[in-house]
């Protein structure tokens, strides 16, 4: 057989060729085009022209861009934090539950099956000012005096999109955290118990350090995803009110499809990618620091 005569290293190269091909064709070329277009004035009304860094400079000075950047950071930080705050207790409880654990794990995963765009609709319905169940609950327990229009006010609208986004991300984060928690040996806790450590000390000195890898990986994936995914915003607020939830992804989309300025859109995309890589770099630094 001819295959056998190929040396191992060549074999590896051949076998990974389809992957490499995808890598170059699917990502390399689009990336090159993206960067090239970002240096052009490229819209439908004027002739296409090379303008150097003008698009980047314009955006940097643009109030709308800077506000969108700020909102993006609020959005992704809020979503990641909320995801973690829900996922950690869930994972911790699941790791201690023996009876019915499998059923509970399946149930916890359900929101993952909800497309973000649908999550936006669901929460939009629950937050509805006139008929929303959340308003009813809060008014009933006396938290609000009367119905609040969550989606219609800048402050609460941001909260609403963060909730709609985080809700679908909790299951993934829970599984990863759970994986980290279950990998820790019981004996460590038992010896800590004998030393009289309370739960806070155990969390601080055993759980968090040992489950750090999976938790950080989960946080990385959650952050990067919520940083760049605008589906929930798209279906819930469309960036409003008064651009209160207008993130970079929405700006990018507007440049492509409302204002038809591809050069600017490309520059926004490049900024977006750079910031995303920066966030990732921070996590990876912590992940590898040891």
């Amino acid at each position: 057989m001819k295959m056998r005569n190929i040396p191992d290293s060549k074999f590896g190269m051949l076998l990974s060729l389809p992957g490499l091909f995808l890598l170059v064709l699917w990502v390399g070329i689009p990336l090159l085009i993206l960067i090239s277009v970002s240096f052009l004035r490229f819209n439908v009304l004027e002739p296409t022209q090379f303008i150097g860094f003008d698009n980047y400079i314009h955006l940097f000075k643009d109030r709308v861009f800077r506000n969108a950047l700020l909102r993006t950071i609020t959005f992704f930080a809020g979503s990641t934090l909320l995801t973690f705050l829900l996922a950690y207790p869930t994972a911790w409880s699941l790791s201690r539950i023996r009876k019915g654990g499998t059923t509970l794990r399946t149930l916890v995963m359900f929101p993952w099956a909800v497309p973000l765009i649908v999550s936006g609709f669901i929460w939009g319905w629950m937050f509805n000012a006139a008929y929303g169940v959340i308003n009813h609950l809060f008014v009933t327990i006396g938290l609000f005096e009367s119905n609040i229009n969550f989606i219609g006010q800048s402050g609460t609208a941001m909260l609403a999109v963060v909730i709609a986004d985080a809700w679908t991300r909790v299951p993934f984060m829970t599984i990863l955290t759970l994986a980290g928690l279950e990998a820790i040996s019981r004996t460590l806790y038992e010896s800590a118990d004998m030393d009289g450590a309370d739960i806070f000390q155990k969390t601080r000195y055993i759980t968090l350090p040992l489950a750090k890898g999976p938790i950080l990986t989960g946080l990385l994936i959650t952050s990067v995803f919520s940083f760049r995914t605008i589906d929930a915003i798209f279906s819930l607020t469309k960036g409003g009110p008064a651009r209160g939830t207008y993130v970079l992804g929405m700006l990018n989309l507007d440049y492509i499809y409302n204002y038809i300025e591809f050069g600017r859109a490309a520059a926004v995309s490049v900024y977006l990618a750079l910031i995303c890589l920066l966030i990732a770099a921070v996590y990876i630094y912590f992940l590898l620091k040891e």
């Binding site: 990502v27 689009p30 990336l31 993206l34 277009v37 940083f227 760049r228 591809f262 995309s269 995303c276």
Partner: peptide, 13 residues
């Protein structure tokens, strides 16, 4: 780590 939304434009083109 590259946001897919960044590559929407080139893909589209």
């Amino acid at each position: 780590l590259i946001p897919p939304i960044s590559l929407l434009l080139p893909f589209y083109l």
